[in-house]
């Protein structure tokens, strides 16, 4: 077996100190294989975002092991591209400049920046909006720029926290299709947080259900549905069965142990 791309082993995380200390993540063990698309689902407050930002290096953790390609994760870095729910496009830069901003940070030289930026805008079908400012873009377009930006500097993996959470149903569907297309063509390791089970099933190779009180992994589902996937797949019995099972698992996982 290949070594995992991302390894999370025995991870613990608490917030606060003394009386106010609350355990948010307990003994998280999760390996992501190279080019695997894994979704984290679970009830609100179970620690999905916390786990993701720990992997991003934006937050500390108390105990455990965290490594990417065998190298421990100590701080944020260019090997992990992050797509935030809030788009985070810098409003004083155009779509193209937002991507160039990341490329410059990654050390690309000026002429390469422009070329790569345009290439990635093309990838998310936004070539025509390269010189528009974020205030002139719709939510879906902004998120496409953010995805293009995160992909542009070729991180080893992509971390996405409810990237389509703020979008309307139709745009959301379009974004899901675009993301599967990009993923199927380019093959990336992705850790994806979502509340939308249909989205998780449609996009993922594996779905990890987290439980609450404290947050931990309760179940994992392998999504056996063949690729390439097109929208029609959502109507197949296999898809719908899995969706139902995941729903049920989330419901069970969200019962707090002390209340059971």
């Amino acid at each position: 077996m290949n070594a995992p791309k991302l390894r999370i082993a025995g991870l613990h995380k608490s917030f606060g100190t003394g009386e106010r200390r609350t355990e948010v993540l307990r003994d998280i063990n999760l390996d992501l294989a190279d080019n695997e698309f894994v979704s984290l689902v679970g009830t609100s407050g179970c620690g999905k975002s916390t786990l993701l930002s720990i992997v991003a290096g934006l937050q500390d953790f108390d105990a455990g092991e965290l490594s990417i390609d065998g190298a421990p994760i100590l701080q944020p870095g260019l090997d992990r591209g992050v797509v935030f729910q809030s788009y985070t496009l810098l409003p004083w830069l155009t779509a193209r400049q937002n991507i160039e901003f990341a490329l410059k940070a990654a050390g690309y030289d000026r002429s390469a920046c422009r070329e790569i930026a345009l290439e990635h805008l093309d990838l998310v079908k936004l070539s025509h909006s390269a010189d528009r400012f974020p205030s002139e873009l719709s939510g879906g377009m902004k998120q496409r720029v953010a995805i293009a930006r995160a992909l542009s500097y070729r991180p080893k993996m992509l971390l996405m926290d409810e990237p389509f959470g703020a979008l309307d149903a139709l745009t959301r569907h379009q974004m899901q299709e675009l993301l599967t297309q990009i993923w199927e063509e380019h093959r990336l390791t992705v850790l994806f947080v979502t509340h939308d089970v249909e989205e998780a099933v449609y996009l993922s190779d594996r779905i990890v259900v987290m439980g609450i009180g404290p947050g931990r992994i309760m179940r994992t589902f392998n999504v056996g549905i063949e690729r390439p996937r097109r929208e029609e797949v959502m109507e197949t019995p296999a898809f719908m069965d899995l969706q139902r099972d995941v729903h049920k698992a989330i419901r069970e996982a969200s019962k707090r142990p002390e209340m059971a």
């Binding site: 290096g57 934006l58 701080q75 944020p76 985070t88 810098l90 940070a105």
Partner: peptide, 29 residues
Amino acid sequence: VPADFIGLGRTLGLPDRKILTRIVVPSAL
């Protein structure tokens, strides 16, 4: 300045000084 803007700068590996001059100040301007 949105916390995610600073998070973005950090995920891009920018040092504090650059996050300040390239993200925080323009954003607060």
